[in-house]
Structure formats: C-alpha cells, structure tokens
Design a protein around this nucleic acid. Structure first.
Lengths: 245, 245
DNA sequence: GTCGCTCCTTGATGCAGATCAACAGACAGG
DNA sequence: CCTGTCTGTTGATCTGCATCAAGGAGCGAC
C-alpha cells in the first residue's frame, strides 16, 4: 500500500513516528511523496546541517541522536535527545547550524523546505501537529531545566533513568508486570553531558543507587527497576506530572 | 483604524508584538477581531490557568511574567521569562496547569482555543509564525540549559545581563552610542531562580563584575555596560550566535 | 596470547557555591 | 519619631561535586 524506501522503520509503529509518517498519515502525505527521502547516518558520526542543507525537516525513524552545545573551552551540554519519532530541522531558517551526534545507527526521513511550507498551507492539521510536538519538546526542555538548575547529582541520575524508562515504555506500549528493565542508550559521559555533571559523578551516583537498592545493574547498561515509585521519589519529581505552557 | 481595548500597548510597536497583533497584522486578524480580548494582572499576582481556562493563547502586551517550576521541598527554577511580544498558552491541551508570576503589571491579549484552531486552518502563515516563535523559545531554552548545566556563577550573571540587554535593545530598536544601559527587571532572588543559583551568590558575582569594571551600577537595578564585547566574553558565549534545531 | 582502545569504577584532594548569619538602605504605616 | 518589611550586601563556614589519578573489564586486531 505504501512504497517506503525504508519500510522496516515504519512497519510496526502504532504512534511511534509522530512527525509525518507515510504509514501513519497516508492521506496527507500522499501528495508529498515525491519530495520525501531517507538518509542514514553511522554511529558516532557528527552531522552538521547548515545553510541550504537546513532546508528540510527530518524525523528520526530509528536510532538515537543527541544535540549538544559546546563552549569554546570544550565544556559540553546536551540540550536535546532525539529518539525515534522525534523530529529535527527548522523550517524557514537556513542560517542556523547544529550538530547531531548519532550514538547508534540513525535513520531519518526528510522533507525539504519549500514543499514543507506549502504543506503548512495545504494540510493545516499537520502544521498543528508540528506545533504540538514543538510544545512537547519545550515542556521537556523545561523539566530538564529544573533538573539542571536545582537537582542534586543523585536526583539527576534517578530522573534520567525514569525519563528513559518512561519513553521506553511509551515506545513499546507494553507494561511489563512487576519490575521493569531498561537499557541505557547512553555512555556515562553522554549521561554526564545530559545532566550537567562529570562522568565520574555519574558513575558514583549510579553505584550509590545500586547499593541502596533503588536500581540493580546487569552489565553496565542494563538497569532493572524494582520500584518505579521509589525511583521517582529519588528523582524528586512530584507525582502530579503536569505543568507548562 | 483599529479598535484596540488597550491601544497604548500596540501603539508604538514595530516588531515588538510577535504573536498576533492587530497593529502589526491587520489583514490576518481582521476576521478574528470578535474573539480577541484583553486581561490585566497586578504585579506580584500568581496566575494559574488550568482546565478550560487554558483554552486560549495569550500574548504579553506589557509587563513581565515568569514561569517557574517548584519542587516539593521548595526548590524553585525559573523556566520561562516572558517579556512583551512573547506568547503563552497551549492550544489543544487543557489538562496542563502552569503558573505565571507577574513581577510587574501585566497585560495580555488572548485568543480562545476554538477560533484559534480554525485560525490554523484559515490563515496558515499565522500558524507558521506560531511554530517559528515556539522554535525560538526552544532555542532560548537550549541556550539556557547550557547556562544552567555548564556555566560558572560569574558567567551566568554576565549571560543574564547580556540577554536582557539584547532583548531590551531589540525592543527599543535603537542602539545608544557608546555605553548602553539596562534596567534589570528582576530581583536578586528572581535572578537566582533564573540562573540556578542562590541570591547571595548572585549578589556577590554582581559585585565582583562591578569591581572588575565589566559593569557599573547606579542603584540596585540600573546597569551600565561599558563594553558589550567584554560582557559577552565574561559570559562565555562564543561570538557566532547560532545553533539549533 | 598481547596490544591498544573504549568504557567504567573507585580513591584522594580541592574548590565553587551553598548555607548560616549579621547588617544596611529604602520605604510605608503607625 | 520608631517599627516592620523587603531588598540587597557581605562575612564565615561547610559540603557536594569537580578534578586529578590509578586501575579494571571487555573486545577487536594482530
């Protein structure tokens, strides 16, 4: 029914691909078929889109990418974490440059700018979805700011694990009974960049949480969470989720 | 030509009111005139919009409002700073609640949700402007995250002053020759909440910058900046501005 | 096997900024 | 006038995390 160049990626997505997916939004995208294309990037590659190459919006189909800001002296802060279904790219602004560091193999589908602007006009509900997604990102950024500005190292680690667990659960759409487990898709250093810490502190705090029974580790990356409530408590999140503009 | 309820606010704005201003965007908004209304809030008032009261998008006409997130134990982090021309409100989401703490008298113009959604369909270029504005906010949030995660106290203060100076300059659209001056619209405590510091540290670092001749103070709030370049250097910002999704 | 590499952990020490505390100026109300 | 409140400054001390440093586990190349 659909002729995806990368069929696997969209094959089994229920909600997953939020941006503009030929599978999820056949009708709207039918007319855009000719300008859609896919690109893939290798793990560890740093992708710089700038100038005229910014003239599209892309959506992550598989893999993970992170956005980081770097200061002249090398201090780095991750400011965006892109999982499948997230989108990148900035319509209408070609001057900006940004880095996407793929930490695993990354596949994106892209839409070039000009037709995208037309799309805004012709299919307003897609425009509205894009706006909502952007507002979602803004929500996430604001929670992230609370984390960076006010949380302790231990709370930061607990928060990160719970964030990943939540997105993971949403992605797979199944809640495992009892304890749930997560594979951290980040190295300790990437976690540090995410959290505004050093990698040593990340390592220490993970060890501490393990020692206190909040989490347990198999290997370096695989985390089991006996009690999500306990973890959220450690994260300092108040239970009622919402806030935002 | 236009019948504003609060005419003063839009009277002298060239770009100022970015969201949807009857002065700036006569044509598009002509058809929305009937659903536009104004609200004002007093200084110090905390405004909570939730439930059905979220069913609009508002835009700050005058005054300043800040968005803060608070943890159970009272730790607070400012996550949004709303100056004139900024907009608030989240179309299509009525569950979220948020606080707007007005630090000066605040006037907003609002658009209710339903007509707003129609607007997305009928006037796509306004929809696109909203998307761009949201992306601008996301940009700002990401710079803010770098500040919170990686900058020193001194750099944070210098950054804040330069941010306010920049927005101020953009608002008034005139560059004063030589040294430029800014009135800080925030108390030391609000600055601390903005920067993820304590108010004592804010005070100390401002004193230090003053002692080192980076800024000079008249009163507590009025700051003169002899050299913007020097200030930016202190802020740790690399000169090429851009980055972002 | 050894080498080299990346990723991770743990220990020892130092410092930036938090915390606790005192005080001063501005201003309003009595 | 005094008194209370709010805002801001500055000092003394404490501490959470950074920094510096060493070493271990996993793994591919040879």
């Amino acid at each position: 029914m659909h002729d995806h160049s990368v069929h696997v990626q969209c094959g089994d997505c229920p909600i997953r691909h939020r941006a503009v997916c030929a599978r999820c939004d056949t009708d709207e995208l039918g007319q855009l078929e000719q300008i859609k294309y896919y690109r893939s990037f290798q793990a560890g590659q740093t992708v710089i889109w700038s100038g005229d190459r910014m003239e599209f919006v892309g959506s992550v189909v598989s893999g993970i990418a992170s956005l980081t800001q770097t200061m002249e002296d090398g201090r780095r802060q991750m400011v965006g974490l892109l999982l499948p279904s997230d989108f990148v790219g900035r319509p209408g602004r070609s001057t900006a440059a940004f880095d996407v560091t793929a930490t695993t193999d990354l596949v994106m589908c892209c839409f070039r700018k000009k037709p995208f602007e037309e799309m805004m006009a012709t299919t307003p509900h897609i425009a509205q979805r894009l706006l909502e997604m952007t507002l979602d990102e803004l929500d996430a950024a604001r929670e992230w700011m609370l984390l960076l500005g006010r949380k302790t190292a231990r709370e930061k680690i607990a928060s990160l694990i719970s964030i990943i667990a939540r997105r993971d659960a949403a992605l797979h759409l199944r809640k495992k009974s009892g304890t749930l487990a997560v594979d951290l898709p980040l190295t300790r250093e990437e976690m540090a960049d995410y959290l505004g810490l050093t990698l040593e502190t990340v390592s220490r705090q993970i060890s501490a949480l393990k020692k206190d029974g909040v989490i347990s580790l198999e290997g370096n990356r695989h985390v089991s969470i006996p009690s999500m409530d306990r973890l959220l408590e450690e994260a300092g999140d108040d239970s009622d989720g919402g806030m935002l503009v």
